[in-house]
Simulated scan of single mutants.
Amino acid sequence: MTLIHPGQVVQPAAVNVTSRSRRALRNLGSFVPHLIGFATLFLAWHVASTYLVRSVLFPAPLVVFSKAMKLAADGSLFENIFASLRRIAIGFFAGSAIGIPVGLAIGSFPLVRKLLEPWTEFLRFIPSVAMITIAVIWFGIGEESKIFLIIYTTIFIVILNTAAGVSAIAPNKIRAAQVLGASRWQIFAYVGLPATVPFILTGMRLAMANSFTTIVAAEMISANEGLGVMLWNGRMYMLVDEIFVSLVCLGLLGFGADRLFRWGIFRFARRFSPAA
């Protein structure tokens, strides 16, 4: 048996560790601009609220942070955040689960496109806020009406982007699969669907932003908890610092969700780009 010098074994591992360390440093460095941007935003907010406006209607960041700590200490802040995120998650994923197959069908079959595209184009121009009354009439003032509004604001964006992704598939990929003897199902599963994933994620990313916008209006329908309730109560009782806490929470949660989708889009677009 041939003995290998220890140096020959350790060297590749050391190279791997070094490459992983460099990759980790690059990933960490990508967050630095975000941190600088947030710091600049809060600094401008502090200067404006302390030296320019000086009004109880425009509290400083430290005042809002102090209020957030009090709400977090008694648990009400986390209860409201979790309530809003639960409604967003249920409605968003339900709307996406409906929108993705419908979008794939519209993009793949001309007859389905002719039948469903007019409905999609008609309904997507009716804002979700205008559907609040219909939601209450159909589902009452419980959780169902709020989730319905999130589904409504999600589904059409996902449908349109998914259909656009199917239409953007490079024809040479389909021809190559046909030449290799792939069936229609294999072309869909191994060519069409992977190439459509970046478009699906882009549609879901846009729909997620709309979900955060809609949840505020949805939770004003006789809800007991949620960030929209915090905004409404702050307006009713002039709790301006509480209003700002809810606004900051909505912004930070939305930013985190958007970064997650951007990462997914980048990862899949690099691997399954329809133009590749």
Rank of each mutant, 00 (worst) to 15 (best):
P118S: 11
A14Q: 15
A163S: 10
V191L: 11
L35P: 02
F148N: 07
I243S: 01
F261I: 14
L206H: 09
V136Y: 05
I150N: 04
V32Q: 04
F272C: 03
P59I: 11
S108G: 05
M230S: 06
R262D: 14
M208C: 14
V64E: 01
G226W: 05
I81M: 10
A177S: 09
N16E: 15
E219S: 01
L28R: 08
P118K: 08
A257S: 15
F255C: 11
I187N: 12
T40Q: 14
I169F: 03
E143P: 00
F199C: 04
S128Q: 06
R22L: 13
P61A: 07
R124E: 00
L250K: 02
S96K: 01
A195R: 06
V56W: 15
I150C: 04
Q186I: 02
R86C: 13
M131G: 03
L35R: 00
N224R: 13
G256D: 01
M69V: 15
E242W: 10
M69C: 15
P6I: 00
I150E: 04
A89V: 14
A44V: 11
N210I: 07
A68H: 07
L201Q: 06
G264F: 05
G234A: 05
L77I: 09
L25R: 02
V53H: 11
F244V: 08
G165L: 00
W263H: 15
N27K: 13
L111N: 04
A275L: 13
I126V: 14
T202D: 08
S49Q: 09
L149A: 03
L149Q: 03
V53D: 10
L35A: 12
M208Y: 14
L57P: 05
F188V: 11
T214Y: 07
L71M: 14
V191M: 06
A170N: 13
A135H: 04
G140W: 02
P101N: 03
E143A: 05
W185K: 10
A170E: 14
R271H: 08
F31G: 13
S96L: 07
F156I: 06
R87G: 08
A207M: 04
F92M: 10
S108F: 00
A73W: 07
F93G: 00
L227S: 07
V248K: 04
V56R: 15
I36V: 10
S108A: 05
L71P: 06
R270A: 09
S21T: 06
D241L: 00
L41F: 08
F272D: 02
V248H: 07
V191S: 11
T50G: 10
P198Y: 01
N233F: 11
N80L: 10
A223P: 02
S222M: 14
V197F: 14
R205P: 13
A164C: 01
V229N: 04
T153Y: 04
G91T: 04
F272K: 07
A168Q: 01
A163Y: 01
P171I: 00
T50I: 08
I98T: 06
P194A: 07
L206A: 12
T162M: 03
A105K: 09
T2R: 12
I90A: 05
A14C: 07
